[in-house]
Design a protein around this nucleic acid. Structure first.
Lengths: 315, 315
DNA sequence: TGTAACATGCTACGCATGGATCGGGCAGCC
DNA sequence: GGCTGCCCGATCCATGCGTAGCATGTTACA
């Protein structure tokens, strides 16, 4: 196979006019250039230069070779450049998975800054719950997934995935405006034994979390209404159909609904970014997510960033 | 610089599905493939495969690399293929120089067969006398030149040029139809002392040749009319304005002009192909010229091929 | 003096060989 | 059914050998 380095040297020789000049330009010795040209002449089975004592004149074959070699070298250089950008995460594709709350509150902030710093990364977004996203991540169909985990409901990701903690949000109690506890700053779960509840659907981590929180208080919450849409849950609470426990980020203040903090329990939802570490673009995306998390934590008192501070040098 | 061989191996691995299968296809050992992929991964600073025990799954980076590598490899392969054709003389450009007689009688036959066997060679033709063509040949502006040389007028080409003899043609005496010697088969130059001559222009080899042939007979030919166009010469002879000595190929039988052979002297014009040996396309062209020369020699009694018989394996 | 070609020695790359490791498939057993 | 041990294919690693590729020094030429 023709050696691209030889082709490059050949073009340098034609541009420079002599082996020695080309050698100086390329950082070779004149002998090395001479040997490369000789090797190239053997490869193409044609003389490429008419040798004089102090002068060389390229044959038409050499000129033809150079004209054609340009395409090859340009393609190789372009590929190399793109590969470099890809390895640095500045170009490429980032396939992102996220659950609804994060898609609404965290992702817009993160993606805005990410798009600014990585304009050439094509970002595609898949919506889904953690249980749906993790398999996609392992199958290589996602590069990065935003997932959540309730402290009372232990949950571990497969070992081949890496987790970066982003946010820890309190679980807020949602009460109808006219509720007898509406004025309280904090409420104990003990005081809610008689309540009817609005919760996420059976089988979800949110539903399990509620059950496990009430268990120490000695009762099973009576759930009359279920929805996975926090907007729907908020509406049901506002109508006085029950109380609810929702993550802080999932709640937007609205008339007719008051919030209270739980007393006596540490109930949090943790939001994390999970990836497999093969796509360099995730490094920058994680950094943007950490920044966005920090902004949210600064704005909302019931939200705080997880352990690590954002660092630019990811794994 | 990215190694094209590594890129080729990478594509083979993705097509084959495993290192071992790709190795079998490429004629490598599995270890060699593994090492090439490892080297490529170092070069692009990205993992290209997720390794399992018996299975590998390419990363998106690998797929991207393959899709881009195709262009590079295709360009390299195409270049290599064209270079191969060029070195074999089947493609490329042949710059040909020729003098008028050869352009009319020899070249059409030769180029017809050459175009058939080398359809991808672009042929360009320059018209000129040997003294004009030789410098062009040495300057690299011509690849092959058809030249002539009169036996009585020694002429040598520069040593860096190679000559392939093609034809030897007799010099024929042209007489007006009503000339007193018109019925003779052969004529001695001694009998032409009183004639007026039509010849090529002063300074041409043809004019020198005539003078040198007459010298042994003890006279200087009286040239009243000169033209380098043999058609014009023939017309002047037909009109009875003189006699002429023309190469056999330059003469086409026509009414009012009779030809006679010279007796007592060996006067021939030799037609040869001259080249510098840098362009592989000349080999095929020379072969076609030899063939055409053979055809002409078979048709015309006063023309015979030079020394060598046409061989396909030129220098 | 400058340039190219040649001869020599050294370095590094590239491949093959052989062995180690990993993980899945399979049979047999509790 | 589930567990255990074995086998097998595939990759990775260490080693050795051959060779390509470059530098150095020298020669030849104008």
């Amino acid at each position: 196979m023709l050696n691209p380095l030889h082709l490059r040297t050949l073009t340098a020789v034609l541009n420079a006019g002599s082996f020695a000049a080309a050698a100086r330009r390329l950082g070779y010795t004149a002998s090395a250039v001479s040997q490369q040209i000789a090797a190239l002449e053997r490869a193409v089975r044609m003389p490429l230069f008419e040798r004089g004592a102090q002068t060389i004149t390229p044959t038409p074959a050499a000129r033809y070779l150079v004209s054609r070699a340009y395409d090859v070298l340009a393609a190789l250089d372009a590929l190399e450049e793109d590969v470099r950008g890809m390895s640095e995460g500045t170009i490429g594709r980032l396939r992102l998975g996220s659950f609804p709350t994060a898609s609404q509150r965290l992702l817009p902030i993160a993606l805005a800054s990410y798009a600014g710093t990585h304009p050439s990364v094509e970002t595609v977004l898949d919506e889904g719950e953690p249980d749906e996203l993790i398999p996609l991540l392992r199958a290589g169909e996602l590069d990065l997934a935003l997932v959540y985990r309730y402290d009372p409901v232990p949950r571990a990701w497969p070992r081949d995935l890496q987790e970066i903690g982003l946010l820890e949000e309190e679980l807020l109690l949602l009460l109808p405006g006219g509720h007898s506890l509406a004025a309280a700053e904090t409420v104990a779960l003990d005081d809610l034994k008689q309540e009817t509840w609005v919760s996420t659907r059976e089988g979800t981590a949110g539903a399990s979390c509620l059950r496990r929180l009430c268990a120490p208080a000695g009762y099973e919450p009576r759930v009359d209404y279920r929805s996975n849409d926090y907007g729907v849950i908020r509406g049901l609470v506002r109508s006085g159909l029950g109380v609810a426990l929702v993550p802080a980020l999932a709640h937007v203040p609205s008339q007719g609904v008051v919030t209270a903090r739980l007393s006596g329990v540490e109930a949090r939802r943790r939001i994390a970014a999970v990836h497999r570490g093969t796509n360099p673009a995730v490094t920058g995306a994680v950094w943007s997510l950490c920044q966005a998390a920090a902004r949210l934590a600064a704005e909302l008192p019931s939200v705080r960033t997880s352990s690590a501070t954002p660092t630019k040098s990811g794994a």
